[in-house]
Each structure stands twice: as C-alpha cells, then as structure tokens.
Write a protein that binds this DNA or RNA. Structure first.
Lengths: 167, 167
DNA sequence: TTGTATTAAGAGTATTTTGTCTGAATAAAT
DNA sequence: ATTTATTCAGACAAAATACTCTTAATACAA
C-alpha cells in the first residue's frame, strides 16, 4: 500500500473530525468506535498529529482531540507527512538513495512527474473538502465490515470499569 | 514505499537482464552481485517471475534465468503484478474493500484517476526501454553503496566451498 | 479531595516482511 | 560415475509494522 495503516487511520480520523458540524473536542474512543479502529492504536497515531500541531488535545472528562487549525487550512499531505514522513513525495520508485537528475535510476523522469502529481493532489485536497464529501450520501470513511454495534456500544465495551447493562 | 522490497529487487533484476546485449541465461549470483542484493533472497523473488512465465530458468552449470519474452513485450506493470499483485493498480487509497463508484471513500475520484495514470505509466514502460536507459552514462540500477568489490569477488565470497585467495 | 474520564507514554505481543541458511533436484563437465 | 554449478523448496531468524495493555498525568465534577 502507498500509505501505512497508521497513516490511513490518522487520515480517516482527521477527515472524521472535519466532517463534524463544529470543531469541538471529540474523544478518541468515539472516533475509534465510528471508524472501527483499535482505540489504543489510534491513540498513538493521533499523538503524532498532536505533536505535529495538526491536532490539539485536552485531557480529562469531556476532553479529546480537535483540529488545531481550520479544516480548510489542513491538507491531506499535511496529515500524511506527519505520520509517514515526507518520503512518499520525495523517494525514488526503487528507493535508491541519491536518485536524482545527476544520478538517476532508469525510471527517474517518469516517476518524478508522477510523484509531483501525487503531491499536488494531496496538497490541494483539504480536510474541509474531504469532510464535506464524507457527509454525502453513500460516501463512507472507513471499513464498516465486522461490528454491527453502534459506536457507543463499542465505547462502553472498551471502557473497563463501567458495568454494562445499566442503561 | 509504493513497491515492496521484493518487488523492487525483481524489477531491478528484470531491467538488468534487459540491459544485456543478448538475452542469455544469467546466473542469479551474477545479478545479485551486480545489484548488491542478497543472493538467496533474490532467488526467491525471481522464482515468482519464473512461475509467472516472465522468466525462464535453467539449472546446472551455465544455467541461470533469462527473459521468457522479448524485453519489448514485458512491461514494468507485468513485473510488479507478478510480485506484489495487481492490488496497487486497483486498491483504494485507504485500502477500503469495496470502495468504488457505488460506495466511494471521500478521495475515490481523485485517487482512481491518479491510479490509472500510474497504471498507464507502468504498462507503457517496457523492459526494453528501461534496459536501454540503464545502459546510459550516469544511470544506475541499484544502490551501489557499501561494497567496493566487483561482482565476481562477491560471487566468489558467496560460494561456499571455493577457497578464496587462490586467484 | 476523591473519584472519574480522558490523553500521554511506553512496555509488551503478534503479524508481516525481509533476509539467511540448508538440503534437494537438475544438468553439464570431467 | 562423480563432481560441480546452478535453480528450487522450504525451514529458520531478524527486523519492521501493527496491535494490546498497563500505568501515569491531567483536569473536571461531585
């Protein structure tokens, strides 16, 4: 895959946040539940985004994470680079270090042009746009495969000391 | 990385073969030496290409592998698909199974167009063309980093029961 | 001021990918 | 026939990636 799984999770979470009507703190539990991602794993992924200043986080009850800038001011490329690093947009197709005009691989020319198209795409796609699209009918953000449970049930199941069956 | 390491090795080996003046059996030792790849690992990778009928192989002294078709009739995409599978040219950016027009992810449109460009590029780049380029001055095929040894020395070092120091 | 809900940090586990090694099969050369 | 050079097959090891769990820090609420 082009993107690591961590990166995909981070992107999905970012788009989810951008798809909300207002930019408030959302708990990672909620995001993980909606996107059907492991809560603990997502937590770590989002820590990257927080450190990269793309998200802000807040601890304690009613805490969570929120976009640190306007959704229109964060690009897909920003999120990808924060998690997978900028190599995707710089690297040789064959991963050869130092591949460049002076010392190219046989696919250098073709690949650089391809790569810059990719970079342009990711740079121009904003979270705002992606969030809008995520809200459209029949557009989905994540793999809705296995669990039939609504997000809240999942969240309850993940929490450790709350007795279930008391609603 | 877009391509797995196995895939890169396979592509490099295929281009190397195509860069030779004539399509003869070349030992995997020689290829591994020239490209600075682990011999045993490359052997396994090239077995994929042999099974996919892109290479033919011959055992015993003076044996090796050779292109099974004309270099002009094998595309980069052929090699990539034989090793990494066709998913690269089909998969959703986020790896969502079933992502398509009926049930798209927010990046579906942009990505499919990107992806088909990529596929077109890889399909139209032939081993012949890449092999020619590999023969040009200052174009290199592999990471020539560490070992200063010429390929033959490497080959000798790799062989197990030949005493070294008898040249 | 104690409990509770949250993120942060990091140790630990599982899975996949990458790389190594050994032995078998094959075919040429001696 | 025996030796030698090669690919083939598959077990094994190491490294990278993906995932789980536990504990700490923080901040709100009762």
């Amino acid at each position: 895959m082009l993107l690591s799984k961590s990166c995909v999770y981070g992107v999905q979470a970012a788009i989810y946040m951008a798809s909300l009507p207002r930019n408030e703190y959302v708990s990672i539990q909620e995001i993980a539940g909606k996107l059907n991602i492991s809560f603990h794993f997502l937590t770590k992924v989002l820590q990257n985004l927080t450190q990269a200043k793309l998200l802000m986080s807040y601890r304690g009850p009613n805490g969570g994470v929120a976009l640190a800038r306007q959704a229109s001011d964060i690009s897909l490329a920003d999120v990808i680079e924060a998690i997978d690093g900028g190599d995707i947009f710089k690297e040789c197709l064959f991963g050869l270090p130092g591949c460049g005009v002076a010392d190219p691989c046989p696919a250098h020319e073709n690949w650089t042009s391809m790569r810059s198209r990719l970079q342009h795409l990711c740079t121009s796609l904003t979270l705002e746009e992606l969030g809008k699209r995520a809200n459209q009918l029949n557009v989905r953000l994540a793999n809705a495969d296995a669990p039939m449970n609504p997000a809240m049930l999942l969240a309850v199941m993940n929490s450790k000391n709350k007795p279930v069956g008391t609603e």
